[in-house]
Computed example of a mutant assay.
Amino acid sequence: MSSATGGWRPRPSRGRPSRGSFPFGHTTTSAMAAGLLVRRPPAYRLWMGLTVAWAVAVGVSRVWLGVHWATDVVGGWSLAAVWTSSAALITAGVCRVRADGTG
Rank of each mutant, 00 (worst) to 15 (best):
S2E: 07
S86L: 08
D100E: 13
P41R: 12
A43D: 14
S78W: 08
G35P: 13
V38D: 14
T27H: 00
T27C: 01
V82D: 07
R98F: 08
D72N: 06
P17G: 07
L65D: 02
S3W: 07
I90C: 05
R14H: 07
S61N: 14
V63M: 05
R98T: 13
G7S: 04
A53R: 09
A92S: 13
L36R: 14
R19F: 09
A43H: 12
L65F: 09
D100N: 10
R45N: 03
R16Q: 01
S21K: 04
A80M: 07
P41D: 08
V74C: 01
G7D: 04
T84E: 13
S30G: 04
V94H: 01
V82M: 02
V58Q: 08
F22Q: 04
T84R: 11
V97S: 13
R96F: 15
R19P: 00
S85C: 04
T27G: 03
P23Q: 07
W69H: 15
G6C: 02
T27E: 02
G7I: 01
C95G: 00
R11H: 03
F24I: 00
W54Y: 12
G103V: 07
T84F: 01
P10R: 10
R45S: 02
V56I: 15
G76W: 04
S21Q: 05
M32D: 02
A81N: 06
S78D: 02
S21E: 06
A81H: 11
G49A: 09
D72E: 09
A55Q: 09
V97K: 12
F24V: 03
A4H: 11
V73K: 04
